[in-house]
Design a protein around this nucleic acid. Structure first.
Lengths: 114, 114
DNA sequence: AGCAGTCGTTTCGGAGCCGTACCATTCTGT
DNA sequence: ACAGAATGGTACGGCTCCGAAACGACTGCT
């Protein structure tokens, strides 16, 4: 059980994690991409482009392009919805799950050593 | 006093904060920019371009350009070091301090409601 | 069957960032 | 005083991303 972080703790945590991400070899995801990825993995499916755009309050092309790039990194997959072929269902991948697991470890460790 | 966050808590915290940043009107800073900004505000001065480049393990132009953009946003200032006029000292601004204070509040609140 | 509405993608011009290489200024050691 | 190191900035070509608008595929209603 934890308690709200104070100002210094919050900023140090953010700094340490950001630093790890920068030093990492893997290409940095933008804040928007990260947000999309986390939404897909944290919230219950199905995830459509329009849903994601509405949730993040950004335009649809932003989602399409982010899915393109993250798809190239295999963090995420797209599939047509067979029930309504206008929709595209965004799905998780093993690589994406591992990526976020690593991120969570990083945050967990950093928060543990505040 | 707090304790290391678990996987779910870590990702939810990151997601919520990222979402707030995306929805915010202010332009998103990249992970690298954020990291530079936090380093300047968390670590003791003086901060030179070369120092920052070494700390983040990136090339000098990355720092120069990040300072350009963040300077335009008035989050940071540059001044020549009069002792050694080759050096540029990176300095904090009121706007930058407010920006990070807002960020810390966001993180603090999110972490409080896990 | 026709047609308006929905959904995701593409296109276009513009902006930002990247890494490499090079440049101008300033300092330092001899 | 001068060569060479150190420091920060700039130029270039390439890549990504952006927002707005147009587009093609699909659905559902009449």
């Amino acid at each position: 059980m934890s308690v709200a972080l104070n100002t210094g703790q919050s900023l140090k945590l953010w700094h340490d994690v950001a630093l790890s991400m920068v030093k990492d070899d893997e290409p940095d995801l933008s804040v928007r991409q990260m947000c999309i990825l986390l939404t897909i993995y944290l919230e219950a499916p199905p995830h459509t482009v329009r849903d994601l755009a509405r949730k993040l309050d950004v335009s649809k092309p932003v989602i399409t392009r982010a899915l393109d790039s993250m798809g190239k990194l295999e963090l995420v997959t797209r599939r047509r919805d067979e029930k309504d072929r206008r929709n595209v269902l965004v799905q998780r991948t093993v690589k994406g799950a591992l990526y976020l697991e690593r991120l969570a470890d990083m945050i967990g460790n950093m928060s543990g050593s505040l």
